[in-house]
Design a protein around this nucleic acid. Sequence first.
DNA 1: CCGCTCTTTGAATCCGCATTCAGAACGAAA
DNA 2: TTTCGTTCTGAATGCGGATTCAAAGAGCGG
Lengths: 204, 204
Amino acid sequence: MQVARNKQRRTERRADLVDAARRAMLEHGSAVRLNQVAEVAGLTSGAVLYHYPDLQELLLEAHRAGMERFYDQRLRAVEGVTDPVRKLVMTITSGLPVDSEDEDVRLLCELGGAAGRNTVYAALLTALYDRQVSMYQVILEIGAAQGVFSLKDPSLTIGRNLVALEDAYGYRMMARHPSIDHAAASRLILDYARLATGHPLPAD
Amino acid sequence: MQVARNKQRRTERRADLVDAARRAMLEHGSAVRLNQVAEVAGLTSGAVLYHYPDLQELLLEAHRAGMERFYDQRLRAVEGVTDPVRKLVMTITSGLPVDSEDEDVRLLCELGGAAGRNTVYAALLTALYDRQVSMYQVILEIGAAQGVFSLKDPSLTIGRNLVALEDAYGYRMMARHPSIDHAAASRLILDYARLATGHPLPAD
DNA sequence: CCGCTCTTTGAATCCGCATTCAGAACGAAA
DNA sequence: TTTCGTTCTGAATGCGGATTCAAAGAGCGG
């Protein structure tokens, strides 16, 4: 079955290119050149075009991959944690870039800038936002049901505000705000979470 | 004194170009072409280069102008209002794009995407953020001094979170989130402001 | 109306990029 | 080793944008 093997190597190669495109966008922004992607991949532009005749499609895949990477990482960071308080705190922490060099978040910021003009990118980001809101809603509702949290607003409202704060502080950190680093941003968001849940949330 | 008149017209012409660049960026993003700027200005690329030999400098000025426009507009929206409650509510409202087509905010979003790679843009955005935070701090402190607000966190914390929420919902609106429009975003931010100020803030 | 300077044009030039493609290189099976 | 399909290269082509510049145009004082 050489046919199956070929098919597999083909998808592997395409995945390599998606990752190269992702890294190239980190360096050159959303308006990255085909040559720049090829250079990162260690290939010529022709080879890239052989696998992805349409560069736009490749960039879209790269953005999608970056989003999934970010989201999966968050899920993995809190998997197995059952205590709602710990889970909420850890989720907030995992939604912020680790530092101003964080690759995944930088890519999302690039995407955010382009989303104003590109409806496909806009749809991707909107979907990611809503998924993250749902993630928070589950945590909040479980905590409320257990009597740990006493929510001062609907879980949808709190979830939306929490994700919004994460996004905004992500941008601030990417822009290297001198006094807002990962710890400071965490504290700011936790201050809101405390008010909204009525729980003194240890900083951990 | 033809010398003085010349100088004035020269600066006027440069201001025209800055505005043309601003509008061109709205259409084509931060990576706008010289030709596109020239077209918006109703000139040829050579004429643009005559006034701004360096395109990067022109784009920087355009971004700076866009920021000032946005900030001045906010200040003007609340000037003359003395009641802290009304002032807070109006400030929150004025910080959000009016709709998903809002030019000033779209430009700021473009800028946000580029700030991850461009330190000058990053500095501009950071300065704008801090100015807006200060704006909120003044309102909050006055309201607290008058006994209208009972702040649940330091004014710096609340101000930072308020501006962060505005920024984030600005991005959401630019990405045309189906259920977050100007009214919904206002409500979400006001929900936080209520918790943080201990005041029932009428929606107005 | 003339002459001066500042401004703008339009053409020429150069450069970099995307795109195409013939053929080289590679790898697997026979 | 030969054959055959897949992958990749490197050169050719063509387009679009940046940049330069001589010359035309426009405004203004004399």
